[in-house]
Computed example of a mutant assay.
Amino acid sequence: MDDTLFHPGERMVQERTGERAIALLNGRNISAHIPAAASNFVAQQRWCVIGAADEGGSVSASLLTGEPGFVQTVDELAGLRMALDDPHDHLRVAAPIGTLEAGQSIAVLLIDLQTRRRLRVNGHVASVSANLLDVTVGQAFPVCPRYIQKREPEFDSPDTAWPPALPVAGSALDGAVAKWITAADTLFIASLGPSGEADVSHRGGRPGFVQIVGNVLRIPDYNGNSMFNTLGNLAVDSRCGLVMPNEDGVHQLQLNGRARVCFDVLDEAESTGGTRRWIEFTLESWRISPLNRPLRWRLIEASPFNP
């Protein structure tokens, strides 16, 4: 089994949890190219999540939306191409999209809420312009459907929310932001490996699964694929960013800060699903910004895996 796929932080968490053998088994799904069977899946998506560090070193996650086909596989499955179509000229307000540079590490998560399929792609920016983003694939792998709430897009909603309000930012969790967080059943977290390699992953649960304690968010770490990409990254670099879509389908809440992994926590309410692990995210700043295109979803079914 190839253990070079995992860096020291990931291996440390795998060993501590006793799940190293499972991680090595699941690691066989990691490829240096987009799986051929996923090419059509990529082209069908209406949105994706981008993870990267900005020019100041802060790690951010952003939502990017478009019509099906705005993301395509290129270079015989060795790359992704994204059309940065922004009819409302708001794309550049959503860090880190506006600060990307060629050669920079980047992570892309493609996720279909209707089928609960997702594909993670980590690599580097090949080129970026006002209209196109090309990504060279370093690693690509499908991820299990657990904790994804099933949703379907709503196409008949009138586009009356545009233009949205200007971005709002702060450094403390006020009432409106706290309400947004505690109502969420989905979030995405971007992190960095020991060499600065970006990663972005999905977290889901029942509304309220994220707990707020002062300026700290507690995010439970449920059982997953045992590779511990996010937890392994946080073990070596505490910088990370979160993003949560809003129910209105127009705005996203981006949070930047630092996080640590807590093991063997006291969990009498079993909020971690039995793992007794959570991520403690300490907020440094938050920002509410509009999506480049509105994307509204209707909840069909909560994940049957939610604790």
Rank of each mutant, 00 (worst) to 15 (best):
V261N: 01
H88D: 15
S191N: 04
R203M: 03
S157G: 06
A53V: 05
L5H: 09
I181H: 03
H90G: 06
E15K: 09
L113V: 08
V213G: 00
P153A: 10
F263Q: 11
T4R: 12
V243Q: 02
L217G: 01
S195H: 14
T272E: 12
G57D: 08
L100S: 09
P8Y: 03
F70I: 05
S60G: 10
L113I: 04
F188K: 08
T73G: 03
L173N: 09
F305Y: 10
S201W: 07
Q44D: 14
F305G: 00
S289A: 15
R46F: 06
E15C: 01
Q44I: 00
L166K: 13
D134S: 10
N29G: 04
R28K: 15
N40M: 01
H251W: 04
V216R: 03
V42F: 05
P158Q: 11
W297T: 05
S195Y: 08
F41D: 07
R296A: 13
F228G: 02
P304L: 05
W47N: 06
A83N: 14
R20W: 11
R258T: 11
L24F: 12
G257D: 04
I30V: 15
L24Y: 08
F263K: 02
F281Y: 07
L63A: 09
R20H: 14
A235K: 13
I30L: 13
K179R: 15
F305I: 00
D199A: 10
H251M: 13
A107F: 04
L5Q: 12
L255Y: 02
V49T: 09
I219Q: 04
P142Y: 06
